[in-house]
């Protein structure tokens, strides 16, 4: 549905974030990353490069990983958004989160929410990725500390391919 709005007028946008319906009043030019972080105080995603190079801002929109730093919040009207805060069920961590902790697949942790969400999306689509598929699908998420070896180990520990499924 196309909506015509003025750029400096706030509009109501309804988003489903981590299963909860949220209504925010925002300028239509605002990016999803900023709305999630600032208006909804979901600071697990990070903004680092601001131009879709690093993947620290990765969230899932209808299950697909997107760079929220260049995604307009308005474009997510009515869509289902998952942030890192919504991945665990209460105190029960998601298997990808558990694998990251067990394998030490992070150092400073700033890129970690994006890494975990990218891997989650991959495993939803392909439960048996091999190492090459992990590398390919995760290469949009930079880690300056260089936790890549352990991220691959975490990914392979979850891959059915590793478990012979």
């Amino acid at each position: 549905m196309t909506r015509i709005v003025k750029s400096d007028e706030r509009v109501a946008v309804e988003l489903t974030v981590n299963g909860e319906r949220e209504r925010v009043y925002i300028e239509p030019t605002r990016f999803l990353a900023e709305v999630l972080r600032h208006d909804l105080a979901l600071t697990g995603l990070k903004v680092s490069c601001g131009m879709a190079n690093c993947g620290a801002c990765t969230v899932l929109v209808d299950g697909m990983p997107v760079y929220s730093c260049i995604t307009l919040a308005l474009d997510c009207e009515g869509r289902s958004i998952t942030t890192i805060e919504g991945l665990s069920q209460g105190n029960d961590l998601h298997p990808v989160q558990r694998a990251f902790i067990e394998h030490d697949a992070f150092q400073c942790g700033f890129c970690t929410s994006g890494q975990i969400l990218s891997m989650t999306a991959l495993l939803e689509k392909n439960p048996t990725p091999d190492e090459g598929e992990l590398r390919h699908n995760m290469s949009g998420n930079l880690c300056r500390c260089g936790a890549y070896v352990k991220i691959l180990q975490a990914g392979m520990s979850l891959s059915g391919a590793e478990r012979g499924e």
């Binding site: 979901l42 600071t43 995603l45 990070k46 942030t83 989160q97 902790i101 067990e102």
Partner: peptide, 21 residues
């Protein structure tokens, strides 16, 4: 031994300077 703050880092609970509002 896995990190004592692994859960915070893996769940987005860890608060970095840029998260302070």
């Amino acid at each position: 031994i896995a990190r004592v703050d692994g859960v915070e880092r893996a769940t987005g609970a860890a608060k970095y300077t840029t998260d302070i509002q």
